[in-house]
Design a protein around this nucleic acid. Structure first.
Lengths: 116, 116
DNA sequence: CCAATACGCAACCATCGGTTGCGCGAGACG
DNA sequence: CGTCTCGCGCAACCGATGGTTGCGTATTGG
């Protein structure tokens, strides 16, 4: 049900720092390692590593701009990731719903045969 | 926007093995470390560690049954996790939508003033 | 009662996320 | 034009995590 690609996307967005980075890039447009690190509780180098991870799975891409390097979100890929999230969520949700329905059915049977 | 609790839940379900374990527990009801490890590509001990992680964040709970130990999903907590997933997904989705709308607006302006 | 089984604990190894330190290339400015 | 500064990448190092194997122990079943 889950492919290797899915796993890479998941582990990429599984990290809270990386989620924050995506938030920042979505809210403020393209950013540099330094500009992002100023708004995050980690050093520029750590941010750089995270950017590399996100780049590797295609969630962002970068372009050199003088002595800076600008990163921005790949909207199509992020949309795909969001789809994966909601898909897994929907699966679990459906299973939970089914379990709850079965539990209620059993409860109904139990109260029918009342007492032991 | 994201709390520490959220982070724990996220990192718990960020691991592909742990997601599979939740899938298995949802599909097949309560399970033991051994029974789960038979359907997963890791050893019983690895499964045991993952179960401990899931237990720590409250996504599952366990009960001893003779020489076995039965684990099962905490439905309420999993429902909460699903809510977090969809919430983040919805946030990103909304941002993407806004970006797309802005992009289209700019495009419209550009074609109005035709040719720079 | 003894053998098999299911488990937890400990030791060990690779990978990952984090830091600091360094060197280099590109802009800024006297 | 020279130099000084800034932004970045690379490397070394450290703690935590996910994986393995090996061992001790308790429960169960013949």
């Amino acid at each position: 049900m889950t492919t290797a690609v899915d796993d890479a996307l998941w582990s990429a967005i599984g990290d809270p720092i990386r989620r924050s980075m995506i938030d920042l890039l979505l809210a403020g447009g393209p950013g540099t390692p330094t500009s992002l690190s100023e708004r995050l509780p980690v050093t520029r180098q750590a941010v750089s590593k995270h950017l590399a991870v996100l780049d590797r799975v295609g969630l962002i891409h970068s372009a050199p701009a003088g002595r800076e390097r600008h990163y921005q979100v790949d909207e199509a890929q992020l949309a795909r990731a969001v789809a994966q999230l909601t898909a897994v969520g929907a699966t679990w949700d459906a299973r939970l719903r089914r379990i709850k329905r079965i539990a209620e059915t059993i409860e109904r049977h139990r109260t029918d045969n009342q007492g032991d």
